[in-house]
Amino acid sequence: MAKVLVVTSGKGGVGKTTSTAALGAALASAGKNVVLIDFDVGLRNLDLVMGAERRVVYDLINVVQGDAKLAQALIRDKRVPTLSLLPASQTRDKDALTDEGVSSVITELKEKFDWVICDSPAGIERGATLAMRHADVAIVVTNPEVSSVRDSDRIIGLLDSKTERAEKGERVEKHLLLTRFDAARAGRGEMLNVGDVLEILSIPLLGIIPESSEVLRASNLGSPITLNNPASAAARAYFEAAKRLNGEALDVTIPIDRKGLFGKLFGRRAA
């Protein structure tokens, strides 16, 4: 049974597109049929991060409006054969997306793939709500800082009210992916720590991706970190997150250095 997964956050720049690419590649390398859809119409990036920007002919808008067939628009990844990409249009705007069009595209993709992963644009406007509309599972990408956490909270509220599942009285399965986590800075109290974020958002944790220059380097090379450097800490965290998505029960390792933990304990006692 195909699952529709939306990667969303509310705030921009937290790592939605990077995480979509990395998780998609990780799921596909595990043998699943995966398609990534870029919903960020007008500001498409997923094709760049996937290294497919020179192969885009048709896009999501063309398919939604019936100008192209789905098979013509899908771009198959050269590294992982089970991974495909449906790019966004860079020249159109979000109003070109219609609810019915998106719905029919997703229904068609669900027949062919195991995972349909929607990369949501930032914000809570049309593009973002359409991206989450048909989701069965949602990954809320959050950075350990207050503005990102509050925006994520807003998005979780929308996931509980504006999705098709919510309107049918069902629940969208929600997971938290904490990205750009810097253990040393969290230890010094310069970032929110994992416990704080989980307490505020109260959804299960899918994984913690450590802050790493490797991630940025991989994105610039047009290759998801999970393909570009599978041995790096960030890639391993994404692989583990992908396993949890497939239902494996793995403990989440929280990257905390001991000094920071002790410092915080004593700090609390003194207060």
Binding site: I124, R150, D151, D153, R154, I156, G157, L158, D160, S202
Partner: peptide, 8 residues
């Protein structure tokens, strides 16, 4: 019996 989210 569920948290009240930002914006609600």
């Amino acid at each position: 019996d569920s948290p009240v989210r930002s914006g609600q």
